[in-house]
Each structure stands twice: as structure tokens, then as C-alpha cells.
Design a protein around this nucleic acid. Structure first.
Lengths: 379, 379
DNA sequence: CGACCTGTTGCATACGGATGCAAATTGAAA
DNA sequence: TTTCAATTTGCATCCGTATGCAACAGGTCG
């Protein structure tokens, strides 16, 4: 439990007040450091395995083995070492361990867009799952436009054990291959042909078809598609799946808006274009953020009622899609499943990932909500 | 430019189809690897400085120096080494470098909540700024509840150069001190007394007061406060600043809702409680997500018009606050400035951070929008 | 009682670069 | 031409842990 700080307490530290670029600085002296529990020297440098070993009169190897599960060491010796290690607060230096084992326990996570709420959620779950099995996440936030190879060069030098790419956009296959050279790599929600990269993705075609079916069942006949980033695989699959299915059902594709980005404002803009033509019963947006922008624009600018005048559906099922105000029908990506599969792939024989690039498709769920005229069961 | 994949292409890879837990697997053989440009052996292990040196007939030290800015080495030798290194695709092994320099160039970023859109934005900017100066971000996504020390033990073993804590909640000062032991640590938007931790925060009191003033100017006299997590410093400061200022202005505090979380639904709930009493002109929510939930609930459940019947303001200025549908008056946190200051602190003499825990307060800006009856200039 | 096997332990070295120090080279000053 | 300083370069060693190998201990079996 965290201590509740007194609400009335004034800030006692001297502060650096900054206002509009001007700043006045004052610093406070360092608070006294309390000594280590076992009266050890309060040097800032952590203790090493050798020192620990010498103190105990054993070899450094023994210490190493004590911390290595399955190593050849007597149970009582191990216990003695671990106990003493805990007392003097010794922990094996991960860096040194990486060097000798040539395994870092670090997974590189390449991201390019944290604005779409779908990604932070995914990253959060992913990094937590990885942590749970002792892997850390090194974040590579790449910026569109500037030199990608330069941005990813660190990815190579840091010897990450594997790379997970969450960026739906950017990054050509060749750049990625270069960056991950010799390392297992997994793309999430992105499929690249002709590389030795594995992919885990939602079955976008299935989802798009399910939404087309749903529109049909709800009575829509003239439907529109609003693209995200046109050339991304996710967009293409959703688009193809949707367009194909509505053709099968004999529905009319009343409009199809090309997209330059997955964003709220792009959704608004597309929705207004479609509404202006007054020939559409239902719009399928390539993802939820677009759809949410679309709903707002339809209701507030186009004067349409959703769902009374027009249906709207998205894709992903981000938290906002469930908000009562939007209550957006969407196709839920199986985030937990995606995370599970990715972690399994990494946990398993990683070298196998290199030998055979695997593509895994996961099924999602159609989530019916008010934006297509369905009264949802719960929030 | 990225190649545009043909929209009609079928997925040619064999796939692992997964539906509802059942899966069928087939793998494809690995694509042929093209050899390295300079005809080097296509072994997966990267070349080392020693090998490179031997090939060039120089010492390993020379190679190391060629890659070390400011090292004592002749310009032409350096050029020759770098040129050849580029040819054989040599890059210094970061792990080995860490071990000998005892500097990792890795910054630990501790987060606990990526749901609030404010944080992903901050993390994104932060990690990009760090990358720009050659620092990588190791993400520690801590989970409420479970053993924090265990979750943060990696933070110690990985010898990160510094720690940035973005979690507004969780984490007692003592746990943090333990985790960052001997390392510079910077808290963002959180002030902890009596530790050697530095803090960079928005001037919450100033912001809350500004919003109180704004309410007053707009004609509100009976105002309410909706707390986020009650015991967090951000909440306390905003609450105190606001309550104090409205007292100074002679306004009435018509309601004050305690909070258990910073979330959309908490905002809805609080708004409904306040609306039920029908005695409030304006509500200040501890952050934007709460406020946005509040607006939705007021409009859709309580039947109030915002801003006609009641004003609403938030804090942070997340992207959604600017959306036309919400057009939320809020106090913008100086994110860029925060990032700049944090990076400067880390870039500068980091050991100074340890000696003197510094607190920096940055000013934000009042953003007036329609939720308090102001017509904003632009989107 | 000796050969043998299993289970422990320590020794020595590897992992890949960084760096203090001394040797070597160059240039300049005397 | 000689001497001294400045600049380069290489050698050796260190960073802290992991691990192959040999040595050794204790116990079993014949």
C-alpha cells in the first residue's frame, strides 16, 4: 500500500520555477543515504560475483551457478550463496551475462504510431507478457520520413533476441530485413511477402466480411468503404474482404474513399464526403478511429442520425468504441490472443522463426453495438 | 518510398489458420538468404573488432578508437577503418561496450498506465528525443497489485543509465529509491518528498487556478471538482489550486467528488452525481479523460447541454479534447517542454541528479474551447 | 578393497571493446 | 644534426559472468 501523502503539505523542496522559458534555479543538497542493511560499504558500485564468492570462500563459478537454474551445484551451497547474496544485495550483472551468453533477454519493439489507441494497449499487454517470462522491451519509436536505417541501427548493435514490429505503416521489407538481420522478427498486423519475417495478424478479410454480412442483416443495401492508409496490408485486406462480400450479397458500393492516414480527422472528412452524396445506408471505416471521427462528423456536421439515418462500423474495438456516446459496431481484434501467440513464438525455439517465416491468422469477434442499430447487452 | 504491394495479390505463404483456439499449422521453407555485399562469409555471427583489425592489419584498439569520437587516432586511419567496416558491415557490439564502459545508453522508462492517451503521447516524444541523442528506452510496464520490487528488479540488473518514471500512481518513494539505487531518476508529473529523486512536473496549481479564473470570467459561480486518484500529487495540487482560488473569488464549491481512478467511466459517474443536485454551473475534472466522460454523461444521460447549461473543463489537453464533439476547455501540459527538460537533465551531468534532487515546475497554457462557452479559433 | 560412476567444485578462459601506458613515429625547435 | 614534444599506435588488461574441462569427493558394485 502506498502512503497517502498529506494533502495539506507544502512542497518543501526548493524548486526551479519555470515560466515561459525563464527559469530560476535553486538546488537542494542530497538527502542522507541510509546505509545498506548488512552494514556493507556504501559504495555506489554494486558488488560483483567474485567479491561475493571471496566473502563466502567459494569460487566465482559457484556464485554464477547458484543463480543459474539447472546448473550443477549442491542444493545447500546454492541456498547458502543465495541467502548471503540477498543479504548483501547482490544481483548478477545482466550486461556481463549478456556478453558471455550472447543472449540479451531483450526484445526490440518497433513502433511508429502511438496515437491510435489500439497500439498503446497492444504494447502494454505485450511488454507485460514479455516481462512475465523475464524479457524486457526495448522501444524503437521510429519517425516517418527521416533515415530509417539510422534509426534502426541500434536495433542491430543491441543484439536484441528478437524484434516485434507493430508499425502498420512505413518500413519496407528490405529495411526490416536489414535491421533484424539474423534475428527472429515478428510483424504484428502486417504481412510482408518474400522475406524471412514471421507475421501474426488478425483475419482482416473475415472481419470485413462479417461486417458486410452484419450490414446486410441490418437492412443496409448501399454501403461505403473508407480506407485507412491505402497501401497497408491491413487496409487492403479489409477493403477486399468487404468489397468482395458486398458484391456477393448483391449490395451496392455507393462510395469508396481513399485514405492517407488512420485518423479521427480523416474519418470526419470521409464521412462528410459520403453524406453529401446522400446515397449510402452504411459506412465501414477501416478502423475505429476513423469511424469515430465519422460518427461525430455525421451527427454534428452532416445532420445525420447514427444509426437511424446511417450505420457506421469500424475495426479494432478500441476502448472508445465501447463508450456509450459512440457505441460503435466493430470487429474486435483478438489482442490477447495475438500477444499470446507472439510471446509463444519468441519463447519457443526462436531460431525456428528464422528458418521458416510463419504467418498466423487469428480470428476476431464481431461486436454489435448501437451504431448499426443493435442494442448492446452491457457496456 | 515504400513499394506498393499489389492490392489483388493473394497471400502466397502457407498459413497457420487459427479460429477459436483450433489451429492447423504449415510452415514454409526459409527463403534463400542473399550473401553479404563484400562476399564475406555468410555466417550469422557478426564480425568483431578483432577480426576487422586483423583483416586490416591494425590493432583492435585502432578499430575501437575509430568508432570513438575524440579518441586519439589519425584521421586517415580512422577513415580507412570506417570505410572497411561499412563494407563488411561491422558495427561495435553495444553489449561489450556497455560492459567495459559501464554505461549502457539505456534509459529505463517506468509506466503503469498507457490507457490515458496523455501517456502514450508523452512516451512517444520522450523515446524519440532520447533516440536522437543515442539513448534507447527500456520499457517497464508495471502492474498494479503484484510485486513491484520483483517487477523492477530488472531495472537494477540492466544497469540503465537513468530512470524516468511516468506512473502517476503506484510506487512508493521507498520502492522507487530501491529500484533506482545509485542511478539518476526523474519523475514526471509526480513529486515525492524526502528522496533523492528529481521531478519534472506541470504547474498544476497554476493551471487549476487559471481554470477557476476562467470559470469566473465566464460567469460560473457554483462550481464542482471531480478528483482523479485522490492521493496522487497531481490530483492534490489541482484540487488545492482550484478550491483555493474559487474561495478567493468568492465562488461556491457546490460539489466535490472523490476519485478512485482517472477514467472515462469515473468521469461519467461523477458528472451524473453532480448533475442530479442541479446546483452547479461548472465542473472541473482532474483530467481530460474524466472530463470527456463527464461531457458525454451530462449530454446523454443527464440531459444537460454543455456549455449552455453547465461548463466543463479538464486538464492535460489530450488530442481528444480538441475534437469538435468535445471541444474541451483544458489546461495544456507543456509536453514538449517537459520532454526537453527531462532529456536535458539526463544529457547533462547525470551524477549531479543524484547529488541534488531537483524539482522543476513548468507552466502550461489555458486552452479555451466551447465546453466553457468560448468559440475556439481553429480546430 | 579396488574399479567405477555420479555429483560437485574450482580453474582457466571466452565474450567484444575500452583504455592506461609505453613504444614508435613525426615534426619542429634549437 | 640533435633533442624534445606531440601525435599515433599497439600491448596488455579489465569489465562481470558463463562454462568446458579436470580434479575431487562420496558412494556403489563386484
Amino acid at each position: 500500500m502506498e502512503a497517502i501523502e498529506s494533502a495539506a503539505s507544502e512542497c518543501k523542496k526548493s524548486e526551479i520555477e519555470v515560466a515561459n522559458g525563464e527559469r530560476t534555479m535553486r538546488k537542494q543538497g542530497s538527502p542522507s543515504l541510509q546505509g545498506e542493511p548488512p552494514g556493507e560499504a556504501l559504495s555506489r558500485k554494486p558488488i560483483t560475483a567474485r567479491e561475493l564468492a571471496r566473502m563466502l570462500g567459494v569460487s566465482q563459478s559457484a556464485v554464477s551457478r547458484a543463480f543459474t537454474p539447472g546448473a550443477s551445484i549442491a542444493a545447500d551451497l546454492r541456498k547458502r550463496i543465495l541467502k548471503y547474496a540477498a543479504e548483501v544485495d547482490y544481483q548478477p550483472n545482466a550486461i556481463a551475462s549478456m556478453l558471455s551468453k550472447s543472449r540479451t533477454n531483450i526484445i526490440g519493439i518497433v513502433v511508429s504510431d502511438m496515437q491510435n489507441p489500439f497500439y498503446p494497449g497492444l504494447i502494454e499487454k505485450l511488454s507485460r507478457s514479455l516481462q512475465r517470462i523475464g524479457l524486457q522491451s526495448l522501444l524503437f519509436n521510429i519517425t516517418k520520413g527521416s533515415n530509417l536505417e539510422e534509426q534502426l541501427s541500434a536495433l542491430r548493435r543491441y543484439n536484441v533476441d528478437a524484434v516485434i514490429v507493430i508499425s502498420a505503416t512505413i518500413l519496407s521489407g528490405s529495411t526490416l530485413s536489414w535491421a533484424t538481420e539474423g534475428r527472429p522478427a515478428i510483424l504484428i498486423n502486417r504481412v510482408i511477402e518474400d522475406t524471412n519475417l514471421s507475421c501474426v495478424a488478425c483475419n482482416n478479410v473475415e472481419g470485413a466480411r462479417a461486417l458486410a454480412d452484419h450490414f446486410y442483416q441490418q437492412g443496409a443495401r448501399r454501403v461505403a468503404y473508407v480506407a485507412g492508409l491505402s497501401h497497408t496490408t491491413t487496409n487492403r485486406e479489409r477493403q477486399n474482404g468487404f468489397v468482395t462480400r458486398i458484391a456477393e450479397l448483391g449490395m451496392t458500393l455507393s462510395a469508396q474513399i481513399e485514405g492517407r492516414e488512420y485518423s479521427y480527422y480523416a474519418g470526419r472528412k470521409a464521412a462528410l464526403e459520403i453524406a453529401a452524396r446522400k446515397s449510402t445506408d452504411a459506412i465501414f471505416f477501416a478502423n475505429d478511429i476513423l469511424a469515430i471521427g465519422g460518427i461525430d462528423a455525421l451527427r454534428e456536421e452532416a445532420g445525420c442520425r447514427v444509426p437511424d439515418d446511417i450505420f457506421v462500423a469500424g475495426f479494432d474495438d478500441i476502448p472508445m468504441a465501447g463508450w456509450p456516446h459512440y457505441s460503435l459496431t466493430t470487429f474486435r481484434q483478438p489482442v490477447d490472443e495475438i500477444v499470446r501467440v507472439v510471446v509463444e513464438m519468441i519463447e519457443g525455439d526462436t531460431s525456428a522463426l528464422l528458418r521458416a517465416a510463419t504467418v498466423i491468422r487469428l480470428s476476431g469477434d464481431l461486436i454489435e453495438r448501437r451504431s448499426t442499430g443493435v442494442e448492446p447487452k452491457a457496456r
